[in-house]
Design a protein around this nucleic acid. Structure first.
Lengths: 223, 223
DNA sequence: AAAATAATTTAGTCTCGCCTAAATTAAGAT
DNA sequence: ATCTTAATTTAGGCGAGACTAAATTATTTT
């Protein structure tokens, strides 16, 4: 019988999944994300690599990757998290930037039944309030076609699909500007010098100028 | 600074609160309720009695009682639990008898904000789906005027206020009969011999005969 | 009142998941 | 190539919260 996937382990797997989107995850990065001493992370990774079945692939000094099993477990948690965020916003009037912490705690304790009921009640959504893709019930991650707003140039018109959700301050600013998922925007100009973009958000009065600190955190698709 | 009230501690306090309604709680009863070895319970009780501030009053071989602080902490958890049950039934279509386990896990992790939002969304209910009183936001427990249906006699007409919620089988049976909170019933007859009551539930076709196993778990108020 | 039984407590261990300090390995600069 | 620094791992420990087995204290029976 497989070993128990505790709350801590779920946290590790979730973070590894996210770091893996940009290559193998290093001990240090993981430690920083989890707010845990690097030495402790090493210990846990060794344990996860030796569990039956193994949840990660781990080679000394070379970072970690998830196994199929590890990935399934990670996607399960991520699905919980994103459905919860969607659910809290739609049924309890939470705002965009308030749901994150709550979902971080709840994601570990809800049952499969709870997950299924939420999905049904919400009409089986594919993205959460920040636009992050929600893994399917079968635990596969849909492909994301969107790219950073920062890569857009003059006269392009695009639709916001997703905004990075790890900085509450950024989220609040984005809401002020009206840069939320499904917002339509047109790029007015681009500055070679600082990478600033001047954009017009549909439905807003005036243009706004945004630095790359913001435009690299907003993801868009053509149209 | 007060010591942290962990999830386990919350479970202990909640159970002690419930046992205390019928006197001091014994080590053994607690152990049975928590599914923990009696020896482990002793250890935890000693710890809780010596924490600053103390959460329980504990004298060897004489059972435990909650201190004011312990009671507040218990009522907090109970409020969470009962609001959650109400919330799950009303927003996710859970039935009466399915919510218990889910609420048992969630009660420990939701924030005060979450609690407040639920209370507001539900219109500040005073009883949960089983009819249990919900502690107030100020953490006081309202008085319960109801008494066991078993104590009713011929020709009395009463309203169901509450049903015991710890046996799923009982709950399902009660739902079949229509014996849910706010149901109106009239006592048709009482048997000295076995304590059986014959009752008529308003809106139901025929009379039912119930033994004390059931009638002692259903609580009613006059009218 | 003594013996038998039941309830409770003590003592000693275990696993988890974290920590710090020290040792090691890898990588980058000169 | 060597030296320095940064990243990582090893070793040893700690607190929480559980367990078992054995000892003790209460209670009940005879």
């Amino acid at each position: 019988m497989p070993e128990a996937i505790t709350q801590s382990i779920q946290d590790y797997l979730k973070q590894i999944y996210e770091l893996n989107e940009r290559g193998a995850a290093s001990t240090n990065d993981l430690a920083a994300r989890l707010n845990i001493a690097p030495a402790s992370v090493t210990g846990m990774l060794q344990k996860l690599a030796n569990s039956k079945p193994p949840l990660v692939i781990y080679k000394k000094h070379q970072g970690v990757t998830l196994t199929k099993n590890g990935e399934k477990a990670a996607l399960e948690v991520i699905r919980h998290h994103r459905l919860l965020e969607t659910f809290l916003v739609s049924t309890l009037g939470y705002s965009w930037d308030e749901v994150h912490c709550e979902a971080d705690k709840l994601e570990h304790v809800i049952s499969e039944d709870f997950e299924a009921r939420m999905a049904k009640a919400l009409g089986h959504p594919t993205r959460d309030p920040h636009g992050e893709l929600i893994p399917t019930a079968e635990l596969t991650m849909p492909a994301d076609e969107s790219r950073p707003l920062a890569s857009s140039r003059n006269a392009e018109t695009v639709t916001v699909k997703r905004v990075s959700d790890d900085d509450p301050v950024l989220l609040r600013r984005l809401r002020e500007i009206g840069l939320m998922p499904e917002a339509k925007i047109t790029v007015k100009s681009y500055s070679e010098l600082d990478g600033n973009l001047t954009i017009k958000v549909e439905g807003q009065k005036s243009n706004v100028v945004l630095g790359t600190a913001i435009t690299s955190q907003v993801f868009v698709e053509p149209k």
